[in-house]
Structures are given as structure tokens and as C-alpha cells.
Amino acid sequence: MANLVKDVTISDSHPNTLLKDKHVNYLKSYSDNKEDYEYCMTEYLRMSGIYWGLTALDLLNESNEESTEAMMEFILKCVNDEGGISPSTGHDPHILYTLSAVQIAALLKQESKLPVQKIVKYIQSLQQPDGSFAGDKWGEIDTRFSFCAVACLSLLGQLDAIDLKKALDFVMSCLNFDGGFGSRPGSESHAGLIYCCVGFLSVTGNLHLIDADLLGWWLCERQLPSGGLNGRPEKLPDVCYSWWVLASLSILGRLKWIDQDSLTRFILACQDTETGGFSDRPGDIPDPFHTLFGVAGLSLLGTKDLKEVDPTFCMPANVIQRLGAVSQKLPSP
């Protein structure tokens, strides 16, 4: 059974410099046409979409203050009776969109306008007896939600509102043979879930529980000859996985274990030269999700003209500093 490396090829025809103005334009005009097909089809994740767009713009040094009031009005309309926040009006609340809303409010320096105690109560209500977190009242369990819970509480300065010990035990029960983490106990390691679990441990100051050399090795093995990173062995590279792997390596103090130049080249090649925005792989259709992770990845790689990003929260570092949301990072060996 021949094992062909799944990868992409990057050529001179792909962009190799940051098309900053195009991205600003792409992000700013994304919501212009409310009847656009892509826009409508992503209504179910609108709150996260706004977080992706606003954070990317901020990292690109572009403020969006004129929309602050409308944005907060929208968020407050999405808060339900129990304190959970929905992706859009009419939709159900979920911890994913609750975190996105808190992140947006923090970006806009409007966190004091949030019904903080209600949100905290909602997050508390989602913790299960085994320490895990459900995404909403219907009970889907995932380590993504453990991360959302502590990230949200940390941004609100209320980390001690939940049973942290049990929450930690659950996350650690998802540790695998390869040093990585999956979504539930026994689930295969996956860069996205690793980011969530490493992020959880970073927020709660428990990174010493990780075998950073073992996990760091697994993570740097995600880099393919094209420079891009995949999310699991034998998979294609992708800009969003590049971020999750990169952010995890950065938290673990092992960013230099990947080839930063070739990753920068891969991310730049995923820009759309016509419309702006980043796609998952060179030549694909761009979207705000990959645009944020492309920009954030480049920021972590030290690309000039971008604001510094915090790898744990995927938000501008100055916002995290302003909030005093402390998170642990391991020193490089």
C-alpha cells in the first residue's frame, strides 16, 4: 500500500506578500449584502463570524468602532433568559456563541455592558458531574466546550465560578497515547481539540500536566513539505489547522520546532488575490474563519504590520492585557 504524502504545491503564481488592504476590504464588506447566499447559510454561526471578522480586522490594525453600538445591541438581543447567547436572533443559545459574544464585547471594550452574572450562571449550569461541559442544555459533551467555559470566565474575571478541579480531571481524561487530546475520553488526537485542551490548561495554569516534548513533537510532525500544517497524520494542510498547531506550539514554548518560513509562505499562498480573505488551501474560496486564522497565524510568526496575537485566546494581546486575563505559557526548553 503506497503511502503518498497528501499535500499541495505552492508555485510562484500564488501570492507571497500580505494583501492587507484587500483583507480589510473583504472583511468590512462581508456583511454588506444580507441576502447573499454564503451570508445567509452561515446565520447559524453569525456570532462567531462577527468575532472572526472583528478580530482579524483588529490584528490588521483596522478599527471598527463605528459599528460598536449596533454590535452590542445585537449581542444583547441574543442573550436568552438563562444567560446563554445565541449565534443570531431566533436561534438557540450555545456556549460556542456565548464565548464569541464575550470576545466581541472585550474587543470593543464593552464587556461591562454584558449581563455578566447571568452569563456566569449559564456556564455554571453546563458543567456536568464528571467536570465536563455540555455545549447547551441538550447535553453534547466536548473538550471544545471545556475551553469555551474557562476562556469565557477568564475574560469575565470569574474563573473560580466553576469546579476547576473536576473540569481539569475531565480534560486530562481525554489525553491520548501520542500526548494529544481529543473531544472526549478515548477520542483521537486532533489539532483543533489539542488547541482547546492546551488552551484550557493555559487558562487554568496547569500546563505542567502535559508532556510538552511528546505533544510538541506530534504537533511539529503536522508540517508538510508545502509548509502548511495538517490537523492529524496523513491529512491535507489547512490554514485553520496551521493556527491551532502553531498556537499550541507557542503556548508550549516550542514554536521553533516547525519551519516558520515555509509556513509563512503557505499561509500567504492561501490569500485570494481578487477578493481578499484567506481560504483553507491555495486556490480555494476564502471565508472569514480562515481569514482570522491566516492573519493570527502570520501574527504569531512575527509578520510585520500586524498586531501581536495572544495564542491562548486568539485575540489581540493588548486586549488580553487590558482585561488582565492571565494565561500560562511554558518557557522554551
Partner: peptide, 29 residues
């Protein structure tokens, strides 16, 4: 959005796609 290749299309194809998408948006809303 993962693995959606951007393809070159003619003006005519684009118009057809636009109409198709408009229909879908209407049905969705």
C-alpha cells in the same frame, strides 16, 4: 468552508449560479 475549489466560470455560468443561489436563499429564509 473546507476544500471548495475556486473555479473559473463564464459570465453566463455565473448568472445561472446567481439565480440558483437566489432561489436557495429565498427557500432558506
Amino acid at each position: 468552508m473546507h476544500g471548495r475549489v475556486k473555479t473559473r466560470t463564464t459570465e453566463e455560468q455565473r448568472e445561472l449560479q446567481r439565480i440558483e443561489k437566489q432561489k436557495k436563499v429565498k427557500l432558506y429564509l
